[in-house]
Design a protein around this nucleic acid. Structure first.
Lengths: 331, 331
DNA sequence: GCGCCAGCTGGAAAGGTTACCAGGAAACGT
DNA sequence: ACGTTTCCTGGTAACCTTTCCAGCTGGCGC
């Protein structure tokens, strides 16, 4: 159906090897011959078959895989966008796969991707054990974890500085006079745990203390669950003067619950989200650089593909506190 | 490096063909033999090489390609998520590529993808000519366009009903007593043109007329540009009582510009966006079903891959008016 | 002028899989 | 009991590309 090198060779009346050399820009071919073959390539509309190319031994395909939970989360969308861009610049395509936080689905997806002989795997891991990846890594498929490390295997990882970011949030609230702070914590594993820890520690270092009765651990990380928890907190006899939400979705839920009482309660959230500055009361956020995370992951992968074999790298990206004036106590 | 069928055959002491049959679930193999081979597969950790598999004649790879402009746009993110999910269910992986609205980049990306012998292409096309795709389609790679049709080639397309959706928006505003309506139009080609047309026609059908001096065509589709244009409209001696924004980003810019005057001016926007209901004044939107668009595109592609060869399909998905109470005139 | 080297070209093998063909054994019918 | 059919298995070719090797030609040095 599609023209092959053989077709081009026949059209140009040359050998197969010569066509290959021209296609790959091998300098060991005379200008006249190059021109003749190129004409045949154009005439036949030949396009090199990357698949056939990468079944050769030692050859690794020029495709990376990105496996993540939810593309609808703007953080992951930005991450994916950056990863695709950087990979594309290096001549790599990106196979996108989703696992929706389901360990079994993740494992199935990895199996699919490995079957396609991707040159490297980028994974936003869930809390399950990732020892099952060891044979793949051993067989030469490098793996990079994003946003959170994985248990059961040692591999490169790119995370943001959850603790420091949360500490910044805590200090921001303290500086604005808050002592009674409610916290909504998403049911995640690594990131939210770190965020709570960093927040708590910063308070302690400031001579303050987090009131555990004001910390709500949610069963699901949805805005609705957060809204319910925050409403509950605000209904207390002695409600908190500020809320810290550990994820973007939770912040949105908090905004929902604070409707009409925006000026009584301050809100700081982890993860920036679009429109945060347009809300009735602008929300101060701790922003992680999703694009940098995606870029760094690709770079790590490319280095491993190129043969780098040192110990696992751990990249910790800084966060940025974006103050949007939600700190003052108005009540 | 990685175990191959030959390794499995050697381990099990059987022929290559038998291994292939077991791997592919061919029923013409005795249970005893199946078990023996399966044991060897498990022992060697064999995984079928999809690349080698798909270079065979007639065989098409089990990979689809999705080429879009901006993954950061929540509409496209939802679309991509749905497409990946549906494709995955059918055993297809999705190669994600971005073109950032640049015709040259798009063409380069398509070339890359075709080189990887994807079984089908999903493209969110920009305004350039797409005749260059004709040879690919002829050579058996089906193409589906999403969100907007492409010129220069006949292919399946999935769009939303831009005109009817905008007409709904117009009727909504009329029903709430608006006659002086400002419109911000993004510099896009197909969608925004349709939206403006549908909006204008609905007004005319209601015996009203769109004042062209209140229609602002933007050079860029950013929130900032929209904010500037809306601010300009609101600064008129006789400002509009309502704004219609033709895209989600433009709506957000309008919200920005309307700050502090939310209760004087109504806002209706095309495209739903997160947090629209949390804004100072909830924004009524015309929502297209991005997920349905992605799903339908994959389905069309799979049908074509399966051999369907009729004329091009044109799927027009309905929109939904989500009223969030922004219609009343408060001034 | 002859030999040698460099430069260029052609051919063949390999890589992992599938499809097809042939062959062997067992079972069944007569 | 013999022939035939069915069931199962093994081997081989083909897919498209790259790599390696061999061979050829022309040029240059001595």
């Amino acid at each position: 159906m599609r023209p092959t090198m053989t077709d081009v060779a026949a059209a140009a009346g040359v050998g197969l090897g010569t066509v290959s050399r021209v296609v790959n820009g091998d300098p060991a071919v005379s200008p006249a011959m190059r021109e003749r073959v190129q004409a045949a390539i154009d005439a036949t509309r030949y396009r090199r078959n990357e698949l056939a190319r990468s079944i050769r031994p030692g050859q690794t395909s020029t495709t990376l895989a990105l496996l993540l939970g939810d593309l609808t989360n703007p953080f992951y969308a930005r991450m994916a966008k950056a990863a695709v861009a950087v990979a594309g610049d290096a001549g790599y395509a990106v196979l996108l796969s989703t696992a929706d936080e389901d360990p079994a689905a993740e494992q199935r997806a990895v199996s699919e991707l490995v079957g396609r002989r991707v040159a490297g795997l980028m994974i936003v891991p869930d809390q399950g054990d990732h020892a099952y990846l060891a044979p793949e890594v051993e067989l030469g498929t490098p793996v990079v974890f994003l946003d959170r490390p994985a248990t059961g295997i040692e591999a490169d990882v790119v995370v943001i500085d959850n603790e420091r970011g949360s500490a910044d949030a805590a200090r921001h609230l303290i500086a604005h006079g808050h002592h009674r702070i409610g916290v909504v914590v998403a049911p995640s594993y690594y990131t939210t745990g770190r965020r709570l820890r960093g927040f708590r520690r910063a308070l302690r270092e400031a001579g303050d203390q987090l009131d555990n009765s004001l910390v709500r651990h949610l069963d699901v990380g949805s805005a609705e669950a957060s809204a319910a928890a925050v409403a509950d907190l605000l209904a207390l006899p002695d409600p908190p003067t500020a809320i810290f939400a550990t994820t973007g979705f939770l912040s949105q839920g908090a905004v929902l619950a604070m409707r009409g009482r925006e000026h009584e309660v301050a809100l700081v959230g982890f993860d920036d989200f679009p429109l945060a500055e347009l809300l009735p009361v602008p929300v101060t956020v701790v922003a992680g650089d999703a694009a940098a995370m995606g870029e760094q992951a690709v770079r790590l992968l490319l280095a491993r593909i190129a043969g780098e074999s040192g110990p696992a790298h751990r990249t910790v990206l800084p966060t940025r506190l974006i103050e949007r004036g939600s700190g003052e106590i108005h009540a």
